[in-house]
Design a protein around this nucleic acid. Structure first.
Length: 501
DNA sequence: ATGTCC
């Protein structure tokens, strides 16, 4: 058997690009890493593998805990981690969903070509930067009150439609139609709502951005046609989350769960994995609050897209409808969701690790995707009609120097990964290390001079933190996803201009 | 990711 040794953790090679940490000790299931050896070399440099092994200790983990090809260490649970956990006898863990609840990305199409924007990049980047709120702290497209925040939390994209910031088609092209009906705004703290009220329609900071891109390659012509993508087309990618509101929801519930379920926590290898048992009051309350923060993030991205349409209308002197600025899709990167999957079950019929299975059956799970994208294939009823025959669009932001990818949900994703794939290139180094290696102005000069990419940011430090060199090779991440049949390559894009916090 | 410690 081929094995891979990584500082105390031995992985067994199951087949090409599939590595397994066998079940041992307190693990409730094995763990799997989906990666090439080259990516595994990078993944094993930080605490990702330990965190993945720890995640397999969560009660009710079904089949195996997973790490996607872009995985790196996060708070308690890897970014790029996926766990399907029994929604009846298992648990829900905020750290396995992430602080930035429904951090995600959407792509808006246009009927413009690269030639239409060439020579006007600086005008475009200045206008976007002036009109789309970004950076740490407050300031959004809408600055509102707690009552309106509660409406947004309860109704998601439906609020944006009624308030005149969205078209019907925008709702249809979001995961879950931009609305989680289980949202319970009464379970979101006053402090979280207060942080959110002046951040509706704001990018934030860190790796969040708005990028105008051009399509450079099409790999699957039939799928690209169904998605409405073609070479040289201008598209806009928006990456951001639920800002201070979602962060506060995570903070609030981590604190409460640690206290109320200390017994469960004592049996876990890492305090950061704090989890609420399925069926407990805190599990229900956190789920309702998390769904509300998910709704908030969809509205956030919608308002940024709405403002982007206005900027394009002024610059190109046409209506957004005339420029066919339609939403391709909005995908969540950091969410937990009740989904039914076929899983191994034990003699009592409870979801279990793949080794202990006496049977397989459909069970409701809390699917935790943290830095991972849903990747449902053709035929799934959750997909919008336009994508029902080809699979859902998956958006994989790369870096400012490498470009990004559009994939489609692969045939094997349901069986292999609870219907999931990677969410980006994945960091290679910490933000602190990035700021030691790079200087923002130099990164911007280099991108402009060598790639004709125009960047404008609130802070030079943010540009240094997001320099192309801090990311893994996105081509390699996508190659593995495609080879495993969990997310198939459809098209590639390259930046034209980028604004960030 | 994040009013990067109430």
């Amino acid at each position: 058997m081929t094995t891979y040794d990584a500082d105390g953790i031995t992985l067994e090679r199951v087949r090409e690009y599939v590595w397994e940490i066998p079940r041992e000790g307190g693990m409730n299931a094995p763990a799997r890493v989906l990666a090439s050896e080259r990516l595994l070399d990078e993944i094993s440099q930080d605490r990702t593998l330990q965190q993945l092994r720890n995640a397999a200790h969560l009660p009710g983990v079904a089949k195996y805990a997973l790490c996607m090809p872009d995985g790196h260490q996060g708070y308690g649970f890897p970014v790029g981690g996926v766990a399907g956990i029994d929604a009846e006898g298992g648990c829900i863990s905020p750290g396995a969903i992430g602080y930035d609840i429904n951090c995600g990305v959407r792509m808006m199409k246009t009927n413009l070509d690269y030639d239409d924007v060439r020579g006007r990049e600086e005008e475009l980047v200045e206008s976007l930067f002036a009109n789309v709120p970004s950076g740490l702290g407050g300031g959004g497209v809408v600055e509102t009150d707690v009552d309106t925040v509660e409406e947004i939390l309860a109704r998601g994209m439906d609020w944006a439609l009624e308030a005149g910031y969205a078209a019907e088609a925008d709702l249809a092209h979001c995961e879950d139609e931009g609305y989680r009906p289980e949202a319970d705004p009464s379970k979101v703290s006053a402090k979280a709502k207060d942080r959110g009220k002046n951040q509706v329609g704001s990018l934030g900071s860190g790796n969040h951005f708005l990028e105008v891109q051009r399509v450079t390659d099409v790999f699957r012509e039939d799928v690209a046609d169904a998605f409405g993508l073609r070479e040289n087309q201008i598209v806009v990618l928006i990456h951001c989350g639920s800002r201070g509101l979602g962060h506060q929801v995570c903070t609030d519930y981590l604190r409460d769960i640690e206290k109320a379920h200390a017994g469960l926590l004592d049996r876990l290898p890492d305090k950061e994995l704090a989890a609420a048992p399925a069926g407990s009051q805190l599990a229900e309350d956190y789920y309702g609050a998390m769904c509300a923060a998910i709704n908030f993030a969809w509205v956030n991205r919608q308002l940024i897209m709405h403002r982007t349409r206005r900027v394009f209308e002024r610059l190109f002197d046409r209506s957004w409808e005339e420029m066919d600025m339609q939403l391709l899709y909005d995908v969540a990167h950091n969410i937990g969701k009740r989904e039914v999957h076929e899983v191994p079950v034990d003699a009592e019929g409870r979801p279990t690790g793949v080794d202990e299975a006496v049977d397989h059956d459909k069970r409701e799970l809390f699917v935790h995707r943290k830095g991972a994208t849903r990747a449902f294939p053709a035929g799934r009823p959750e997909l919008p009609p336009a994508y029902g025959d080809v699979g859902q669009p998956i958006l994989i932001p790369g870096s400012m120097g490498a470009g990004s990818y559009v994939l489609r949900g692969g045939e094997n994703s349901i069986a292999e990964t609870f219907g999931s794939t990677a969410h980006g290139a994945g960091r290679l180094m910490s933000r602190t290390q990035a700021k030691q290696e790079y200087w923002g102005e130099d990164v911007m000069d280099d991108l402009r001079d060598t790639h004709e990419v125009y960047v404008k940011a609130q802070s030079g430090a943010t540009v240094a933190e997001e320099a192309p060199g801090v990311y893994k090779n996105v081509d390699e991440v996508v190659r593995v996803s495609d080879a495993l049949g969990i997310g198939d390559k459809v098209a590639r894009t390259f930046p034209v201009c980028n604004i960030k916090g």
